[in-house]
Simulated scan of single mutants.
Amino acid sequence: MAPDGREVSAGPRLVRPYALTSGRTESVVDLPIEATFEVLPSGRTATWPEGDLSGRIIELCTAKESVAEVSAKLHIPLGVARVLLGDLVTAGHLKTRTTISEYTTSDERRELIERTLSGLRAL
């Protein structure tokens, strides 16, 4: 109960999104929303505390999720996802994958666009 007599919720406390990035709003790595990732050996062998956001991001990236999909699935703003993903790339746990190149088939492009749209809709 609060000092003024109001009931206080015992539910989870909310953390401001940019507290997760220490107030940073831009990633040191340029990450388009459709960028996908490859988990590097250091990311696979790292020990993440239970519930740690970095560990959850690594798990999602093993399924080749895009920046937009990571943001949607973790319920964090796109800018926060970019900063956290950029941190993991800089730390050597993730590597960005080429999204579209001259060698990409039309089916691969269609799949990428559909996945990106799905992630954006989930935001």
Rank of each mutant, 00 (worst) to 15 (best):
T47F: 05
S54L: 11
I76R: 04
L14S: 03
K73E: 11
A2M: 11
R82D: 08
A10R: 07
R97L: 15
L60H: 13
V80E: 01
R6W: 06
L85E: 04
S54E: 14
D107C: 00
S66V: 04
T36V: 00
E34D: 11
L20E: 05
L40W: 14
L20P: 04
E65F: 12
V80W: 07
S106A: 12
S71M: 06
R56T: 04
T96Y: 00
G86I: 05
G51H: 03
P12K: 07
V15R: 08
S22C: 10
T104G: 02
R13I: 10
A46N: 10
R115D: 07
E69Q: 14
C61I: 05
R121S: 09
I76T: 00
T98L: 12
S42E: 14
T45Q: 13
V83N: 12
T98A: 11
R82A: 14
E26G: 00
S106G: 00
T105V: 04
E108A: 13
L74E: 05
R44S: 13
L20R: 08
L84Y: 00
E38Y: 06
E34F: 08
E34T: 06
S106N: 08
T99F: 01
L60W: 02
V28M: 08
A72G: 03
G51P: 05
E69P: 02
R121M: 08
W48S: 00
S101N: 02
L60Q: 11
M1E: 07
V15E: 12
D87R: 14
A81R: 04
G92F: 10
L117Q: 07
V83F: 14
A46R: 13
L14C: 05
V83D: 12
P12M: 06
P17T: 02
K64Q: 15
E69H: 01
V39G: 11
L117T: 00
G79P: 12
L60I: 08
I113Y: 13
R56D: 14
T96P: 14
K95L: 10
G43D: 02
P77N: 01
G119W: 02
T105R: 02
T62V: 13
L53T: 15
P17E: 01
R56G: 09
G119V: 01
L31Y: 01
R6F: 07
R110G: 02
R56I: 01
K64S: 13
V83M: 14
P41D: 09
E7D: 08
R16G: 08
K95A: 15
R16A: 15
T62S: 13
A46E: 10
W48M: 01
P41G: 05
V83G: 12
L78F: 05
L53A: 13
P49W: 03
E50K: 15
S106M: 09
R24S: 13
L74C: 04
V39A: 03
I100F: 10
E111A: 15
T104A: 05
L112K: 08
E108D: 14
D30C: 04
T90R: 15
S106Y: 07
A2H: 10
S118G: 05
V89T: 05
P41R: 10
P77T: 02
A91G: 09
R56H: 10
R110E: 15
R82H: 07
T47Y: 05
L94G: 06
V28I: 07
R44F: 12
S54G: 15
S118W: 04
V67N: 06
E38Q: 15
I58K: 09
V28H: 12
E102L: 10
A35P: 00
L40D: 06
E114F: 11
A91Y: 11
